[in-house]
Design a protein around this nucleic acid. Structure first.
Length: 583
RNA sequence: GCGCCUGUAGCUCAGCUGGAUAGAGCAUCAGCCUCCGGAGCUGAGGGCCACAGGUUCAAAUCCUGUCAGGCGCACCA
């Protein structure tokens, strides 16, 4: 439950230095800016860099360089933490951390294992993440798949940083679309029976409707027949049930389960919508005009007021949504997160208005927008048409490329930007495919344990290995990456940006593969005599592959590998992706 | 017309919320397996960060304007 030993010790040292300087009267700023540590782009600039001195320049009215100097002078016991402390140009504070401190990260990872990286910034606040929420009028398509992957990832990221999270699916099981589903199925049924059927103009044209009608035929063939109304009603409820369970199944095969399914119809049948509108009416936030009822959303920054009850007496979608979000607030959530398709962005101001109407800051509702997925097959766009009902379902994608690959691809890019998803690429088992690249890194390490076991090489836990042997730049580079994990996780969670995780994992995997290729971890079989002599040290140089390994070094490197494996596993797990030991 | 999002290498995209000389993958070219999984690795070329102003010690990042693309602007959901 921390940002890692290195991060913590270094930031607290900086903080001590700042406070110490203030006590001595060397600095006067009342509130320090947040002390974030950057990892510099170039190795000469140290392991970690701080820009505090420069950001304090204004409030201190001094040159950044002088401020940096003061900070450095006030660092408590710098020799214990730092190899080198440098002040560069405008006022960068470049810190080179002692290898011993970096190496502690491996013990930390070992100790915390699956919880390494988690923090408690959420402080146990309750969050409700609502996602997918597709109308139960057809199978989920690719776009829903991305929404599902993002929603699940956001939910589990928030859990990882200390929120208490519930994920929920809102079922639009009321209103016109459901009715239309019923008439569409009924029309197909009549066609199957050779009866006259005029298919509704704006009905659901997909082939799945016909298939559904066929499947439901036994339940619809009633002796004496049904009235048109009865038939449509029956079609609606049967089709609804069938489609909802299809959706649940599809989500399940995608590895996604919701803690809660919330029905729109229940809001209507319990009069919740009515009550909420009456309540708002008494507060003059809903008013009557032109025979309709309007929500005064413009009071809260929306561009205009919105109808909640139409002239014909029907409620609009917004009415249920107000009641629904009111219900979410009632249930005591501190943070509401809605994952929506980007085409609904215009809806955000009015929903934030709802928050404010109930006395909450509009930030209490956070909307994560998910842009369209452009499906490709070997570079060619796969066309989809909503009108003809021809679209690629989420299920088809999962069946073709697998749940892991699909999720990783859905999460690779910032959710608010368009995503190109090439089915052929996602299926490839090569370096071109980032999913396998990352999973392979994990599997590769797993295979080390197998080989070690078969050769009778014992792997002591990191706590008993001599980690000080991990002083090579490649080794320390790997450790630094591992140490950055908690920070990446937190940034991804706080910003609702799972793609930061996929990026991080790719980078970590790249470092691992490079390391693996360049250095040996286990002694070669033919090296066993050399190994038996326990030749001290290594002969590295340009023939890195010829470096000989002492048992201690092997143990240390295995400890490093254990850390890498754990972090990859943790990262993939947060994203809902498996970390296989064999591929 | 108004609003939101996007514009970074030939292509697909990152860029840690204002930091240092701009970063990956693909594609292209040149290399690496007697050995822990080649589903891997190394190297090279490739940039006016759409454009123009502004803010400051510092701008791909913030502000304004322009251009281009996407999406919204219902008493539909």
């Amino acid at each position: 439950m921390s940002h890692g030993v290195v991060q913590e010790k270094v930031t607290s040292a900086l903080l001590d230095a700042l406070n110490g300087a203030r006590q001595k009267g060397q600095l006067k700023t009342a509130a320090w800016p947040t002390l974030s540590l950057d990892t510099p782009k170039r190795p000469e600039w140290g392991d970690l860099a701080s820009t505090v001195a420069m950001s304090l320049a204004a409030s201190e009215q001094r040159a950044p360089h002088d401020i940096a100097q003061i900070i450095v002078e006030n660092l408590p016991q710098p020799d214990q933490l730092f190899e080198r402390v440098e002040i560069v140009r405008p006022g960068f504070l470049n810190l080179t951390v002692k290898p011993a401190l970096w190496q502690e990260t491996l013990r930390e990872i070992e100790q915390q294992s699956a919880s390494y990286g988690t923090t408690d910034v959420g402080k146990g606040q309750r969050a409700l993440v609502e996602y997918v929420s597709a109308n139960p009028t057809g199978p989920l398509h690719v776009g829903h798949g991305r929404g599902a992957a993002v929603g699940q990832a956001v939910a589990s990221l928030l859990t990882a940083v200390g929120f208490e999270v519930v994920s929920e699916y809102y079922i639009n099981d009321a209103g016109r679309q459901m009715k239309l589903l019923g008439t569409s199925v009924a029309a197909r049924y009549r066609e199957l029976k050779g009866q006259p059927a005029d298919f509704p103009e704006d009905g659901y044209h997909g082939a799945y409707i016909t298939a559904l009608a066929e499947r439901l035929t036994p339940a619809l063939d009633v002796e004496g027949g049904l009235s048109a109304e009865q038939l449509e009603e029956r079609c609606q409820s049967l089709a609804y049930q069938a489609l909802l369970s299809l959706i649940r199944e599809d989500l399940k095969t995608f590895g996604i389960e919701f803690a809660s399914w919330f029905s729109e119809a229940s809001l209507l049948s319990s009069q919740a919508v009515e009550r909420v509108l009456d309540e708002l009416k008494s507060r003059r936030l809903v008013f009557e005009q032109d025979g309709a009822w309007w929500f005064r959303s413009s009071d809260f920054g929306d561009e205009k007021d919105r109808v909640v009850k139409k002239q014909d007496g029907e409620y609009t979608y917004l009415a249920s949504d107000i009641a629904y979000h009111r219900d979410k607030l009632r249930r005591g959530y501190d943070l509401l997160i809605d994952v929506w398709g980007a085409d609904h962005h215009g809806y955000i101001p009015r929903m934030q208005a709802v928050m404010q109407a109930y006395g909450h800051p509009k930030e209490r509702l956070q909307v994560v927008l998910v842009q369209l997925v452009k499906l490709l097959r070997a570079g060619e766009e796969v066309k989809m048409s909503k009108r003809t009902g021809e679209f690629i379902t989420m299920r088809e994608v999962i069946d073709e490329v697998g749940a892991d690959a699909a999720k990783f691809y859905f999460l690779m890019r910032d959710s608010k930007t368009h995503l190109e998803f090439d089915l052929e690429l996602a299926k490839q088992r090569s370096a071109d495919n980032p999913v396998y690249y990352v999973q392979y890194a994990h599997a590769r390490i797993a295979s080390l344990w197998r080989v070690a076991a078969s050769r009778g090489i014992t792997c002591p836990p990191p706590s008993r290995a001599n980690l000080s042997l991990l002083s090579d730049p490649d080794e320390l580079g790997l450790i630094r990456k591992l140490a950055a994990y908690p920070t990446v996780l937190e940034a991804a969670a706080i910003g609702y940006e799972p793609h930061r995780m996929t990026y991080y994992l790719q980078q970590l995997a790249a470092l691992l593969h490079t390391f693996y290729n360049k250095h040996r971890i286990l002694p070669t079989a033919t090296d066993s005599e050399v190994f038996a002599q326990a030749a001290p040290g290594i002969t590295a140089d340009e023939g890195a592959k010829r470096e000989t390994l002492s048992p201690e070094r092997t143990a240390a490197r295995l400890a490093l590998m254990r850390g890498v494996q754990q972090v990859i596993k943790n990262g993939l797990t947060v994203l809902g992706i498996s970390a296989p030991d064999q591929m």
